[in-house]
Simulated scan of single mutants.
Amino acid sequence: MTGTGIAAEEFELTVRRRRLRVSVRRASGAGPSRTPLVLLNGIGAPLELLQPFVDQLPPGLEVIRFDVPGIGGSPIPVVPYHMSTFASVVGTLVERLGYERVDVMGFSWGGGLAQQFAVTQRRRCRKVVLAATGMGSLMVPARPSVLAKMLTPRRHRDAAYATTIAGQIYGGTMREHPERAAAVLHNYSRRGPQRGYYYQLLAGAGWSSLPALGLIRRPTLILAGDDDPIIPLVNAKIMARGIPGARLHVYRGGHLALLTEAVELAPVVDRFLLA
C-alpha cells in the first residue's frame, strides 16, 4: 500500500536563525512505529519535487521535507551557507521536530548533505539512502556541456527550455520523452528568487565527501542510474567501495528516475529501511 493522497502539515520554522519551510507527512494506519525519513532535495528544487516519490511510500512511514534557504518557500538567507555546516541545521531541525533519530535520504545535491549529516550528526542518523548523487568537488564530473547547463536555474523556470535539454542532461527516459522533465520540474514548482539557486551552488563549493566516506558508519543504500549524465555511474561505485558495508542498486534510467520511475524505486528504498 502506498501513501498516495496523504495530506502533509506545512509550516515555517526558524532553525539557527534560518527560516525554513517544512512539510511533515505524519505516519498513519496500524502497524509498528517506524523511524521517520528526512528527504533532502536536489539543487533549485522545492520540496514538492519529490512528491511522486513520497506518494509511493507506505502511509506508516513519517516523511519530513524542507526547502533550503532561498528555494521554494524558504526565504533568501541574509548570509550564504555551506554544506559542511548546514548539516548541523538539519540536525537541529530534527531535534526541534521531536525526533531522536531519523533515516536520511538525499537526492542529487541533497545526497551530499545526507553524507555530511551521516558523518557530523551520526547520533541522530540510523540509515542513509543516496540517490543519483556523488561526492562533490572530488568526483568524476559530468561532461562540460552538461555542467554548463547546471550553472543556471533556467530549466526550473522555463518549461520549454527544460524540454529542449532534458535528454542531454537527465538521460534515461528523458531521451525519448523529454516532455516528462518539464512535467516533473514544473508540476510541483514554486518559483523562488534566482539568488537562492546560486547560494545553493556555492554551498557545495570546495566540499567533497571523498576523504570522509569511511566515516559514514551507518547502513547505506546507494541508488544510481546507468544513464545519468549529471552523475556518472562510476561515482556510485566509488562511494559503494568507500562506505563500509554500503549496498549499491543500479537501475535502468537517468537522473530523474526517482521521480519518473518512483513506482519501481520506492519499494527498493522501503525494503532497505525496513531491513
Rank of each mutant, 00 (worst) to 15 (best):
T4C: 12
E9I: 12
T14I: 09
R16T: 10
R17T: 11
R18G: 13
R19Y: 09
V22F: 06
V24N: 05
A27F: 00
G31C: 03
P32K: 04
L39D: 13
L39Y: 09
N41E: 00
N41P: 15
N41C: 02
G42R: 05
G44L: 09
P46W: 00
Q51G: 02
L57S: 13
P58L: 03
P59Y: 04
I64E: 08
I71P: 05
I71Q: 00
S74Y: 08
P77Q: 00
V79R: 15
V79L: 14
T85S: 14
F86C: 02
A87K: 12
V89F: 01
V94M: 00
G98K: 09
E100Y: 13
V102H: 04
M105H: 10
S108C: 12
S108M: 11
G112D: 07
G112A: 12
Q115E: 03
A118S: 10
T120R: 11
Q121P: 06
V128K: 04
T133W: 01
M135S: 04
V140R: 12
V140H: 11
P141C: 08
P144S: 11
S145N: 14
M150F: 12
D158K: 14
D158Q: 12
A160D: 13
A160C: 10
Y170E: 05
T173N: 10
R175M: 04
E179F: 13
A183T: 08
V184P: 04
L185N: 02
L185V: 05
Y197G: 07
Y199N: 00
A205M: 13
W207E: 09
S209N: 13
L210E: 08
L210P: 01
A212D: 15
L213A: 08
G214P: 05
R217Q: 14
R217A: 09
R217D: 07
T220Y: 00
I222D: 00
G225Q: 10
N235E: 06
A236F: 00
A236H: 01
R241S: 14
R241A: 15
L248K: 05
G254V: 02
A257L: 14
L258V: 11
E264T: 14
E264Q: 15
A266W: 03
P267A: 10
D270L: 04
